[in-house]
Design a protein around this nucleic acid. Structure first.
Length: 476
DNA sequence: AGCACA
């Protein structure tokens, strides 16, 4: 077979009409405007692709309708005057594709901020420090923000800001589709793949150093004890629809309250999402309602999302309906601190969890101690390396560290470790025989059951419950 | 002068 026959067949099928036209012999770096000027007499142009080919002198034009493309091709086929741009003859044929596979989709426009999703892991599995470690191999990571996702979904997403698009591209090219090294992951994680595209962001607005967000360029940024950062997500929904005004205080209506719901119970439930600052229970319209105050809106939103419609107890008992309160700071009139000696602490010191959740509950002063005031004398590395493989300090994948290296100094200590998902009130509570059982996953909508904190115990027998008090009892 | 992008 001669080698030339393959080349001729390559162009034979270009006679098949398409609403996409292929234009060649264009002047060098012909503009889209020139292209449109040439083609628009024949129909409505819906897409173009200019400066194609090694010489950047080819282009594609897509008409809204096939007939429009046909009219242009047949016009110039029978015209004595060839199509011209800047005096140069332009050759026009039907493209061998039926549509322009689009100009770069948004995620492919290189920028300095990457949108990373880590598939196959949950919120507690990959710390922001691990993410930082992995991406620092390619250059100085300025900021990281993990996106607010409903806990329990099998992926994490984060925005990672580099200084420039080149660095970000290098990280993307090297890591897209790859996995985070096993030694940086908890045992239980199976496969874990990175999917990386470019974000349209250029500068992330990080408000706090927390386990959800970091600004490695600003050592003075306050540390947020609740460890839930607040501001990367737009307030508007994806469709631009306005959401109800958010608040750091949730209003909970408790339906079908067959069992006592005390402040302790509510604290146990709501602390799983962040430090609960104040709780008030009161009667309204014959029903029981409660106000739960978090330090910030994001935490409240997280709790609201996760708990809405769920029952504290199995069997549809004490179903929660959550909305945002108009309050932002509850006016607590009759503070009643829990005395540790009475043994009625709402939370045991669960593994890793209650340690920082409890203070905000027992003592209002300690609740405000964390935000904005990291203890200056605390000597800690910029991130918690505990539990990491010793090799974790080196860039993964054998990459040479960037010239910037790791920002290993000058940053504030990290917030206290977040309650690991496994450490969220996995208590220790005895459910009394015959008492309500924890709500089973069958009660929950799909996918959400895992992060619903285990229900707290029914209150001890004989203890007065909150809902029978006619005056609104208010507690810290 | 002869078909891109993922």
């Amino acid at each position: 077979m001669s080698s030339s026959s393959g080349q001729t067949t390559q162009f034979r099928y270009t006679q098949t009409p398409s609403k996409v036209l292929h234009l060649r012999n264009l002047p060098w770096e012909c503009t889209e405007e020139e292209l449109v000027e040439l083609c628009k007499p024949f129909g409505r142009i819906v897409n173009t692709k200019c400066n194609v080919g090694a010489n950047r002198n080819q282009a594609f034009v897509e008409f809204a309708d096939l007939n429009q493309a046909i009219s242009m091709v047949s016009f110039y086929a029978s015209s004595s005057e060839p199509a011209q741009v800047r005096g140069k003859t332009v050759y026009i044929q039907y493209s061998n594709r039926q549509e322009i596979t689009n100009n770069k989709s948004s995620g492919d426009v290189a920028g300095n901020v990457l949108l990373v999703t880590i598939e196959g892991v949950e919120a507690g599995d990959v710390s922001i420090d691990v993410i930082h470690l992995v991406f620092s191999a390619f250059g100085f990571v300025h900021k990281i923000a993990t996106l607010r996702k409903l806990l329990g979904f099998r992926y994490i997403s984060a925005l990672i800001q580099f200084s420039d698009a080149e660095t970000a591209s290098a990280a993307r090219n090297a890591l897209d589709g790859r996995s985070i090294p096993r030694y940086l992951l908890p045992e239980h994680v199976g496969s874990c793949h990175l999917r990386i595209s470019f974000s349209a962001h250029t500068d992330l607005n990080i408000k706090f150093q927390s386990h959800r967000s970091r600004d490695y360029t600003n050592p003075y940024l306050p540390v947020n004890a609740s460890a839930i950062e607040g501001t990367v997500q737009p307030v508007l929904g994806p469709d631009g629809k306005k959401k109800e005004p958010e608040s750091n205080v949730l209003l909970a209506s408790i339906e079908n309250m067959q069992y006592a719901v005390t402040v302790d119970v509510l604290h146990a439930v709501f602390s799983a999402f962040g430090a609960v600052q104040k709780i008030a229970i009161f009667e309204k319209n014959g029903g029981t309602q409660a106000l739960i105050q978090y330090p910030d809106i994001t935490t409240a939103a997280l709790a609201k999302e996760a708990l809405e419609g769920h029952c504290i107890y199995d069997g549809g008992y004490c179903k929660l309906h959550l909305s945002y309160s108009r309050h932002t700071d509850l006016n607590v009139k009759r503070p009643r601190l829990h005395d540790p000696e009475t043994g009625i602490l709402p939370l045991q010191q669960g593994p890793g969890g209650a340690a920082h959740a409890a203070p905000g509950w027992q003592s209002p002063s300690s609740a405000t101690a964390y935000p904005g005031a990291p203890p200056a004398d605390r000597q800690m590395p910029p991130w918690d390396m505990s539990g990491m493989h010793p090799a974790a300090g080196r860039p993964p994948y054998g990459m040479a560290p960037s010239s910037g290296g790791f920002p290993s100094q000058g940053y504030p200590p990290p917030p206290p470790p977040p309650p690991a998902s496994s450490g969220i009130p996995t208590q220790q509570y005895q459910y009394p025989p015959g008492g309500p059982r924890p709500a089973s996953s069958a009660d929950h909508p799909q996918g959400v059951s895992q992060q619903l904190p285990p229900p707290p115990p029914p209150p001890p027998y004989g203890r007065p419950t909150a809902q029978v008090v006619s005056q609104p009892p208010v507690y810290y």
